[in-house]
């Protein structure tokens, strides 16, 4: 990554502890979900965050999207320190960072029409905007994420998983954010739909110069999609580097385990397996 790139978000030594109350006789226990995370996110890049469930990926996502406060450490957004536990954050800043969740079935309100889903962020953040303009903006976004005009008045249950994920992406983009946190956006989708959503994300990134923090445990998707990769293990970043560095020369044991566990679809590896099977049979 070149040095002249604009840093839009920096994380310095962020930790997050969760304290579980011990009850009547037990001692309270502290879980160290994040143990000092450092990284920078540049303008227009895709940074992938890889790790198994329970390693703290989503905790980090919650801190970056200003949903949860860090226990210690510094979160800098365009150079300004932010800590939601200490000081209220401006609506302007919150607008800059949006999130897309993994499960498109759970993240849309079933009683809200798609148009209303897309209009809601504007209603809250721009109350003075005329309803006509709001409608127009929502309609434009609907078309941008690859849906049709007639979908505007429909309810989420009338859509497939891939279409719902398009709606969720559209909603996240309504306020012109600089950065999207994508929390496993394609892991609930079929292979062919996954390809469509990844293409859409690439197009939108180019058009709006967005930065993505792409959380995933699927290394084949990461290899295709990311510019840089961070590998997280038990609340720590154990390895980070450009995509090519990580995939061609993994240094940490856990990264190697991950790479070894990823299914191989090359003809050679299938042939090897089939021949080995015949030999033992």
């Amino acid at each position: 990554m070149s040095d002249n790139k604009e840093v839009i978000l920096s994380v310095r030594g962020i930790t997050r502890d969760y304290v579980t109350p011990g009850g009547l006789f037990g001692k309270p226990e502290t879980v160290h979900a994040l143990k000092g995370i450092d990284f920078d996110l540049f303008r227009g890049e895709t940074l992938a965050l890889v790790g198994e469930s329970g390693c703290g990926k989503s905790t980090l996502a919650r801190i970056l999207t200003l949903i949860d406060a860090q226990t210690s450490g510094e979160l800098l957004i365009r150079g300004n320190p932010v800590n939601i536990a200490k000081k209220k954050v401006s609506a302007e800043l919150r607008r800059r960072i949006q999130i897309v969740f993994q499960n498109p079935y759970g993240s849309l309100n079933p009683r809200q029409k798609v148009g209303a889903v897309l209009e809601e962020p504007l209603k809250i953040n721009n109350p003075e905007m005329s309803s006509e303009e709001r409608r127009q903006k929502a309609m434009d976004m609907l078309l941008k994420v690859g849906l049709k005009k007639e979908h505007f008045g429909r309810y989420p249950h009338m859509f497939s998983g891939g279409q719902r994920q398009r709606i969720a992406i559209g909603r996240a983009l309504m306020l012109n954010p600089r950065m999207l946190v994508l929390d496993e956006p394609v892991s609930a989708l079929d292979l062919s739909i996954q390809a469509q959503i990844l293409n859409l994300l690439k197009d939108l990134q180019e058009e709006f110069n967005l930065s993505y923090l792409f959380i995933s445990h699927d290394l084949s998707v990461v290899k295709y999609f990311a510019d840089r990769v961070m590998v997280m293990y038990f609340g720590e970043i154990v390895e980070s580097g450009t995509r090519d560095e990580i995939f061609s020369n993994p240094r940490h044991e856990y990264t190697r385990t991950l790479l070894a566990a990823t299914p191989k679809t090359s003809i050679e590896s299938i042939r090897e397996r089939v021949l080995a099977g015949k030999a033992t049979a």
Partner: peptide, 22 residues
């Protein structure tokens, strides 16, 4: 063929082919 070419690890170039192409 479409399914196999939609595999990210087999991607050639910048875009993944999708089943609508198929």
């Amino acid at each position: 063929r479409a399914l196999l070419s939609a595999l990210p690890e087999r991607a050639e170039g910048d875009r993944l082919p999708t089943v609508s192409d198929f």
